[in-house]
Simulated scan of single mutants.
Amino acid sequence: MIEEGRALFLQIAESVEDSIIDGSLPAEGQAPSTNELAVFYRVNPATAAKGIAMLADKGVLYKRRGIGMFVSPGARDLLRTERLAAFADRYVDPLLAEARKLGLGPADLVDLVRARAEGSASATIERTPR
């Protein structure tokens, strides 16, 4: 689960985010403690605390004094919006740039993605006439 070359606290924060996005950690649900995360990931509790603090700073988690950290209402929507923007930047924008170079339009891309999603590894498309 731990990836070499990426800060451990970021990976821990992302793991908690994943649980919020997939619904296994719902709004108002109690987040794992820093000690639980430290044991699970076999890291120093300060490292886990840094990941949790990052999520609190983003407004994803909030602290209930003496009880622990909890998922903020709206955290799932916030994370989905943030990840959708990152997905578009990382994958969609380069895809569109390459499609333009190849002379492909939006309908061509939809056809290609649909064919690949349906399992046709050798999917090819005919260029849309311009």
Rank of each mutant, 00 (worst) to 15 (best):
Q11I: 11
Q11H: 02
I12M: 04
I12T: 07
I12H: 01
I12D: 07
I12F: 01
A13Y: 05
A13Q: 11
A13C: 10
E14D: 15
S15D: 12
S15W: 09
E17S: 03
D18E: 11
D18P: 01
D18S: 06
S19R: 12
I20A: 03
I21S: 02
I21P: 04
D22Q: 05
D22I: 08
D22T: 10
S24T: 14
S24M: 03
S24C: 02
L25S: 01
L25W: 00
P26K: 05
P26G: 03
P26W: 02
A27I: 00
A27C: 00
A27T: 10
A27G: 03
A27P: 09
E28Y: 03
E28V: 03
E28C: 01
G29L: 05
G29R: 09
G29S: 07
G29A: 10
G29D: 11
Q30Y: 01
Q30G: 02
Q30W: 04
Q30A: 07
Q30H: 04
A31N: 06
A31F: 00
S33T: 14
S33E: 08
S33R: 08
T34V: 04
T34P: 00
T34D: 02
N35W: 01
N35G: 06
E36G: 05
L37N: 09
L37H: 05
L37K: 10
A38I: 05
A38D: 03
A38S: 14
V39P: 00
V39G: 02
F40D: 15
Y41D: 09
Y41P: 09
R42S: 10
N44D: 15
P45R: 12
P45I: 10
P45G: 04
A46T: 14
A46F: 04
A46L: 11
T47S: 03
T47R: 02
T47M: 01
A48N: 09
A48V: 08
A48H: 06
A49N: 13
A49W: 01
K50M: 12
K50E: 12
K50Q: 12
G51N: 10
G51F: 11
I52H: 00
I52A: 02
I52R: 04
A53F: 08
A53L: 10
A53E: 07
A53G: 07
M54E: 15
M54T: 15
L55C: 13
L55S: 12
D57Q: 13
D57E: 14
D57G: 06
D57F: 08
K58V: 07
K58T: 13
G59H: 14
V60M: 07
V60E: 12
V60R: 12
V60G: 06
L61P: 11
Y62R: 14
K63S: 12
R64L: 15
R64N: 09
R64E: 15
R65A: 13
R65S: 13
R65Y: 10
R65W: 09
R65C: 07
G66T: 14
G66V: 15
I67K: 05
G68K: 11
